[in-house]
Simulated assay, not measured.
Amino acid sequence: MKPAYRLLAELEATFDDTIECIEALVACYRQHPRAAWALHSPTPNADWLRAALLDFWYQDGQDGRVTRSYVGLIAADEDLLEHVTRVNAAKTNFADILARIRQEAATLIPELKAVLPFRHPALHTHLRGQGLARLHLKQCWRTLPVADAPLSRARLAWYSSGRSIKKLSVHDAEKKLLALDQDAPHIRIQLQRLAGIPDREPLAQVQKQAPLMRANLFFREPLVDGRLRRAMNVALPLFIPSHNGQLPDHNTPPPFPNDKRTRAKRSDERLEDEVFLPSLRVYRYKN
């Protein structure tokens, strides 16, 4: 077997392991349900948990940089936490092998996206029946959030960081455009537009960042390092150690982030309103 395809075989095995560990976790929860809360579900039961943890797919038209969130809190005893640990270990292994494939055999990525779903008929049927497009690798390997210790309370809030801005030189922008399809009319137009400005003019590449749910966790007792609180992003259900099967005190954040501007004017308002190079999301600065 060629080395590249050996990596693919290893990835297939870790994908199988990830699915099996998730199914075991869900079976454990189904057998002994614990207290749970979910942002967009009034009844976060075992079926909801399974759907959340096995959502590995792109939806039609989904931006490849975006992952779907399943914000929730689950009280977890030692047995359930052991299953969470196994799931995260399998996901970490999957991510490590995938990183090696990207580095050593990136041309296999389209093939593995097509092959992996067929290894689990139930998932493939779901893929076809729900109008989903293909495997979303990041949603496969993102790990399950776990609180370090029992909590006295948890506070959830949307966090919007707006836009990230990266400065680009004209030369850098030209290299990025040339790496795209140079024969495409819209790329040629942008290259011509770029050639019409001074070489030393700074440009700005803008990336809009999706809102995140942020959890502020308050521990019942100090951790080993003395901390009494921790903040973490929670795109998947947060598993909280609980000896009595109950959740700590927690708030109920709004179901969706506030889309109104709440921050003061920032440096990105020095950019022109109209995008200069649409294919790169590059803007010029105002004079």
Rank of each mutant, 00 (worst) to 15 (best):
A4I: 06
A4H: 09
R6D: 12
L7I: 06
L8V: 09
L8H: 06
A9C: 12
L11Y: 01
E12L: 07
A13F: 08
A13C: 08
T14F: 04
D16C: 11
I19D: 00
L25C: 06
R30I: 04
Q31W: 11
R34W: 07
W37T: 02
S41L: 09
T43G: 12
N45K: 08
D47V: 12
D55F: 01
Y58V: 04
S69G: 09
V71I: 12
E78P: 03
V84S: 01
T85C: 10
V87W: 00
N88S: 07
A89M: 10
K91A: 00
N93T: 11
R100G: 02
R102G: 06
Q103C: 12
L108E: 05
L112K: 03
K113M: 11
A114W: 08
A114D: 13
P117D: 02
H120T: 12
H120Q: 11
A122Q: 14
A122H: 12
L123N: 03
L127Q: 02
A133R: 12
H136T: 06
H136Y: 03
K138L: 11
K138Q: 13
R142Y: 06
P145Q: 05
A149H: 05
S152Y: 10
S152M: 12
R153D: 07
R155I: 12
A157E: 13
W158D: 01
Y159I: 08
Y159L: 14
R163F: 13
I165G: 00
K166S: 14
L168F: 06
V170C: 10
H171Y: 14
H171S: 14
A173R: 00
K176T: 05
K176R: 13
L177K: 01
L178P: 00
D181E: 08
D183P: 05
D183L: 14
D183I: 07
H186L: 09
I189K: 13
Q190H: 03
L191A: 03
R193T: 13
A195I: 06
G196E: 15
G196M: 13
I197C: 03
I197D: 03
I197K: 02
P198E: 04
P198K: 05
A204K: 00
Q205L: 05
V206P: 00
V206I: 10
L212F: 09
M213I: 08
M213D: 01
F218G: 04
P222G: 10
G226M: 05
L228Q: 15
L228P: 03
L228A: 13
A231P: 06
V234W: 00
A235S: 15
F239M: 04
P241W: 01
G245T: 04
Q246F: 10
P255A: 15
P257S: 04
N258M: 08
N258V: 08
D259P: 11
R266F: 11
D268P: 02
L271C: 05
E274M: 12
F276P: 00
S279F: 05
R281M: 13
R281Y: 08
R281I: 08
Y283L: 04
R284A: 02
R284S: 04
